[in-house]
Amino acid sequence: MEPLVNYLFVSAALFAIGVYGLVTKKNALRMLFAVEILINAANLNFVAFTRYLHPTTVTGQSLAMFSIALAAAEAAVGLAIILAVFRLRKDVDVSEIKGLRG
């Protein structure tokens, strides 16, 4: 099997890509993509650490399952918000959506 570090490096790369997307993108859907990539990087870390450091337990897999279910809920609400905003404003550019700005 691979050494643990390789999984951690892949996870760090995915995390960096997600941060890049969150910083640069103005499109609401792209930001949602970036958040999903971040969550996936975290899940990979959970499972890799459990497999290597506590191979007889499944704690990381349980936590990853919780995390996946939470991500599903987050995606459902996020997409519904995007749809509602699009219907209201005909736009998905987050810098154009200023209705809630103080």
Partner: peptide, 16 residues
């Protein structure tokens, strides 16, 4: 129409 990559230099920097 949604502008993409407005702070792309900053984004790449932060990611690196």
């Amino acid at each position: 129409k949604a502008k993409e990559g407005v702070h792309s230099v900053l984004g790449v920097l932060v990611a690196i």
